[in-house]
């Protein structure tokens, strides 16, 4: 058979090749940012007051707390798991904080942090020891924590006025900025650095991306898993403390709404439920989207019955964009 001669040179220009690059690499976060911008524009058109200082403050306060739980939640999602116990933990921490403020004063804060870390450690250990999926294990621990919160909760769960000074750690301001936002910023940077620039954080990504390879490459899976769940416990505990302080009182059912909200913030921001891709910036965008949506739909007067389904659609689309289908043999 005759040889086929070489055809003339490349038919696609360099330029076209390079314009594609960025879009293919991080489509999820671009989608999220676009969504955020579009929503802000739409809500502003719908109601002039959407961008008023008062309303922006409402949105950021809500988003800030959601971001803090979300960042923790994200750590467990990055590793390929999920933490359904954040709700129970938040409720529990909220009650513990109120009680502890009365008895041990400022020591209540480190106590609550350790409660969060401890809960995360227990979650991680249960996963390793009993070898069950994280959504089951954390569903269990979350339930236990919710019960505990209700059991130990004093009535009323309010912080005594004598301790209000201590709450300034959250409620006060520093050079004109509310402490709540400054704290959130610090926590965001903490997660950003831990996940992106430390070995322990990177190991979360490797494990989420390919657990077998990670194990074979010498990554300590158990430690990485504990670490991810401790980060989640930490985030939930801090979020609960923020909420409790800003409301001058605890609530033994406080965390309930945050279970799904935190997961939504993570996935809407573009972190894949299948693990291994995403990050702190994604969750920041995700938390803002949810904050803007919750508030905006009320501000422009979307029917309350309708709000949930819009949220649902946004979540489904986001997950559809980021879900790595090659990792799941069958959709159950």
């Amino acid at each position: 058979m005759a040889e086929i001669k070489e055809e003339e040179g490349p038919s696609i220009t360099e330029k076209r090749i390079t314009t594609h690059r960025k879009r293919e690499r991080i489509p999820a976060i671009y989608f999220a940012i676009t969504l955020l911008v579009v929503m802000v524009v739409l809500f502003t058109i719908g109601n002039r007051n959407f961008l008023s200082a008062y309303n922006v403050n409402t949105i950021t306060s809500y988003s800030a707390i959601l971001l803090v739980v979300g960042l923790g939640q994200m750590s467990t999602i990055l590793i390929g798991g999920i933490d359904l116990s954040v709700g129970g933990l938040m409720s529990f921490v909220s009650v513990v904080l109120v009680i502890a403020l009365k008895t041990i004063g400022a020591w209540a804060f480190p106590l609550c942090l350790s409660v969060g870390l401890m809960a995360g450690y227990i979650n991680g250990t249960i996963l390793t020891r009993i070898k069950i999926p994280s959504f089951i294990a954390t569903l269990g621990t979350g339930g236990i924590l919710t019960s505990l919160a209700l059991l130990v909760s004093p009535l009323p769960v309010v912080v005594p006025a004598s301790s209000y000074g201590l709450l300034d750690i959250v409620n006060g301001t520093l050079i004109g900025m509310p402490n709540l936002l400054l704290l959130t910023l610090v926590i965001f940077i903490f997660f950003y650095v831990i996940l992106g620039f430390t070995t322990a954080g990177r190991n979360i990504y490797y494990t989420g991306s390919n657990i077998k390879m990670s194990w074979m490459s010498g990554i300590d899976i158990r430690r990485t898993r504990n670490f991810a769940f401790m980060l989640s416990g930490l985030g939930a505990a801090i979020a609960a403390m923020m909420q409790t302080c800003s409301q001058f009182g605890g609530d033994p059912t406080m965390g309930k709404v945050y279970i799904l909200q935190s997961i939504a913030a993570v996935v809407v921001g573009g972190t894949a439920l299948t693990g291994g891709t995403g990050g702190a910036v994604n969750t920041l965008i995700g938390a803002l989207i949810l904050g803007v949506m919750e508030n905006g739909m009320n501000v422009v007067g979307v029917d309350a019955y309708f709000q949930q389904s819009i949220l649902g659609i946004v979540i489904i689309v986001s997950v559809a964009l980021t879900f790595d289908r090659s990792k799941t043999a069958m959709i159950k």
Binding site: Y205, M213, S217, G218
Partner: peptide, 29 residues
Amino acid sequence: SEGLALGMTVADNVNLLVLDKLKAAGLIN
């Protein structure tokens, strides 16, 4: 299935074992 984190970058895969050596001021650089 055993050698690579397929969803991650070439750099992430190549550097997996030496992250500790690629640090400046205690952080991965």
